[in-house]
Design a protein around this nucleic acid. Sequence first.
DNA 1: TGTCTTAATTGACATTTATCAATTAATTTT
DNA 2: AAAATTAATTGATAAATGTCAATTAAGACA
Lengths: 244, 244
Amino acid sequence: MSGIKEPAVCGNCAECKYDCCFSNRHCGDSHIFGLLTHEELHALMDNKRQIHFRPGETILKQNTPLTHLVCIKGGLAKVVSEDPKGKNLILQIIKSNSIFTGGGSIVDDFRHFTVAAITDVDCCFIDTSRLYNTLTKNSAFAIELLKHSNNQHLKMLSTLINLSNKYMPGRVADTLLYLKNNIFETNPFDFILSKQELADMSGMTKESFIRSLKEFEDSGLIHHSRNTIEILKESELTEISKNG
Amino acid sequence: MSGIKEPAVCGNCAECKYDCCFSNRHCGDSHIFGLLTHEELHALMDNKRQIHFRPGETILKQNTPLTHLVCIKGGLAKVVSEDPKGKNLILQIIKSNSIFTGGGSIVDDFRHFTVAAITDVDCCFIDTSRLYNTLTKNSAFAIELLKHSNNQHLKMLSTLINLSNKYMPGRVADTLLYLKNNIFETNPFDFILSKQELADMSGMTKESFIRSLKEFEDSGLIHHSRNTIEILKESELTEISKNG
DNA sequence: TGTCTTAATTGACATTTATCAATTAATTTT
DNA sequence: AAAATTAATTGATAAATGTCAATTAAGACA
């Protein structure tokens, strides 16, 4: 893990070509940084640091103070809720160009999740103390962040319903469809996730996940080998997801 | 259910004494409406309607368009996620003086929950189309709403963890402690909720809830009769909650 | 008061899921 | 390449939870 202090640059500056929040001015679908003026962007990003993480490294640790926002510039990371007894629940996979506020921002200012790199990850750390100031000055930015927050809220609701109302086959189907349609966006897809991680996404033990996957394989719904899964009958998987 | 068009009044007007959002200027802990100027308050609340609901009535219905915010002025309501197969999950109980945005606001603008009255409920409906304008003009208000949203987010996270990581006794303990400490704030407490509703709060069938409750009774942790529950050994219940 | 209806409770049983131990496969290290 | 470690898989079993049916209790009503 290495921290490189970046110069204050933005899409409006000649020298600025290489950074997600600056040159592209968007994180995920929200284009949230595009709402800032040149000056506001500089004020917020001035002392931003871009950091590289290797697979497996912890980017943010649950229960530590929330001092920075994180923008994922490249790579995949997992958002994990760690519980004292060691049961991990993977709530979300974060892709390139997404902004991660961590839930507790502006509320209790500590982190409620751990974020860990799955692949190599490049990301920016943005000071939350500066965020407050930006929110005050630019209400369009504040509204966009509110939208982002509400979006996360709805995603978590969907996770909650999936995990609490469905039996294992439905939950496994959800995980597979989520990976194909939202994360990897190819079929078949190579995944870097272990069976334990897939189980942690589905709220079950790895043994149960494996058995459920095998049933799908035997029914011809999917085909999987070491690190690849191909979804053969998506509509049937969707049915299984719906029926719980 | 009756709708009474209210005059545009606020805490600054002489005639205004009777309304939660106006005279008290707060909803729950957030005092969010206190951040608005006299003019902004009027602009937002001008055509507000105050409505009375009787026990059991639906206040907001899942999957309908999200056109209004709701402020609960008096009474208790339940926030329910209804699933197509009829499995209901009660996510939250709403008390007096709380604001309910419903998750989907500013995102997809439809409701992701049903809200139903448990007791008699008085509440105000505030036009969300006016909300956007207010957010734009008053960033402190926007930040406060963001805080509210993040708060809801964290509460949902806690629900998610409780439901997915704990066995039944832990979940029942959570429900009982939540009712005592957050909703009724007395001990013993009279509850108006049916066993089915308590089970829906705990993510299990009513039969399972009843059995779990009986075990607590037999172990001397609680005492319950028809509509009253008394928590006798809170610290032990807290342990059960922690250990899942 | 007795009838009707709904909610609460109990018991027997089936299903779902986790746990534990053993084995095999894959990966890393030496 | 062999040894050592870690991950994946399988089977047997136990624990957790849901389902169904039957019974009792409580509340509503005429």
